[in-house]
Design a protein around this nucleic acid. Sequence first.
DNA 1: GTAAAATAGGCATAAACATGCAAAAAAGCG
DNA 2: CGCTTTTTTGCATGTTTATGCCTATTTTAC
Lengths: 250, 250
Amino acid sequence: MIADRQQQILQRLNQAGKVLATELAEELGVSEDTIRRDLNKMGQLNLLRRVHGGALPLQLDVPDYADRLEKKDPKKQKRANQAVSLLKPGQTIFINSGETCRYLALAIPKEMPLTIVTACPLVACELVHHHKAEVILLGGVLFKPALRCAGAIALDMVRRIRADICFMGICALHPEHGITAKYIEEAAMMRAMIEQSDQTIAMGGSDRLGLISNHEITPLKQLDALITDKDADPTMLKLIKAKNMAIILV
Amino acid sequence: MIADRQQQILQRLNQAGKVLATELAEELGVSEDTIRRDLNKMGQLNLLRRVHGGALPLQLDVPDYADRLEKKDPKKQKRANQAVSLLKPGQTIFINSGETCRYLALAIPKEMPLTIVTACPLVACELVHHHKAEVILLGGVLFKPALRCAGAIALDMVRRIRADICFMGICALHPEHGITAKYIEEAAMMRAMIEQSDQTIAMGGSDRLGLISNHEITPLKQLDALITDKDADPTMLKLIKAKNMAIILV
DNA sequence: GTAAAATAGGCATAAACATGCAAAAAAGCG
DNA sequence: CGCTTTTTTGCATGTTTATGCCTATTTTAC
């Protein structure tokens, strides 16, 4: 019952761009108190942004800074915006390498105070104008196929950092085999980043689901959420959800 | 719905470049007092710059490094080519940050085996296709005014590396005051790189000669050669040569 | 200098809110 | 099914917040 109502609230929120507590109470036939309790709970779960009077969708306050990445991919932008909505000011985050991660970097509000750690020089370059962010670049040997630093030095740096969230653009995600990477150096870096983070959020198109690459990074139970698109196969999603991952469809 | 209104204000601000309190009050259908309270609050949160009458967007004074190389500078290219001619296969080199150094990176032959160490993510990106080169990126906190890593971690990494040549794009070179940098963090990194190298080669346009910036890096006697252009003042060159520097004019 | 606009602070009001409590509904269990 | 336990809900309470209006003050423009 409750889940149903919260689903309805989310639906209205995404449709209208905002919801008012009073309106919801009337339209859903429950008291305002109940609605407020719902909204508060959902706000804590990061399903929406609670404001005085009602609630707003999470991605509404993310301005569109993505004008520097040439070939704009709206799906990746959407995923990035959704990922950014999970961020809270003051957090420390890992950002992996890859195009998805560049979109993520661009989507981060310029005024948000954060500590951003990345092994990818391109991600670092995108963050030059984020004055409130401390950007930490993981050093070491540049691993060129993936354009990121890897190897002993980079791994050592990762292991000295503790982060709130690890954002990971994924190439291959399989319900049984977890996430996998093409190069072993990459896999080692990603595993280290996940281990050093309280929470890990995987991002990737629905075409990446069910794939297996060469080197295992980690099983799905180590991951907390997956941001993918609505084209994803429902059975696949069910299997992933069974591994205790939250699914966010954009 | 305060948050909703504040988002609208931000949107208008980014779109128009400024907002007036009176206009906002009328267009958003609330009193001017409310708008002012919003603007003040947002100003305190550093979301905008509050001014008498309205608000302005936070202005960014950082040049857009990523786009600056498009307008090709033939003089810098010549200097870069001259610098590359001093390289021998198998050497280990430091490349400093700055536009001059990006030209240098681009001028390095793609097939030359080298170990290239840099603190600048953009220089690293230019070297992705140099398959024979091992690129080492100095990590640590990204120092944004110069788009390079600096601070304790980067310094520590520099001091573990021994290089044959250090290439240094210079902002200011003075016969008596040596080379100087605008930021102290930059100066410290450059000094460390010079100390760890057998040979240091300075590169810079003739307009940089005779200038003094804020933070001393090192006196000229620590440097081995200067690559500059033929417009350089002869007297100045004589003074520099007296400090035991080789002069290469291109 | 003056006049007009913009602003800051005080105050009142209505809406939104948190909290405690009891009734109602749902879930668990023998 | 009947019973207990837990959760959810609605109501009453007092509190907080947002807003608009007022006045005194500051800033700006001329």
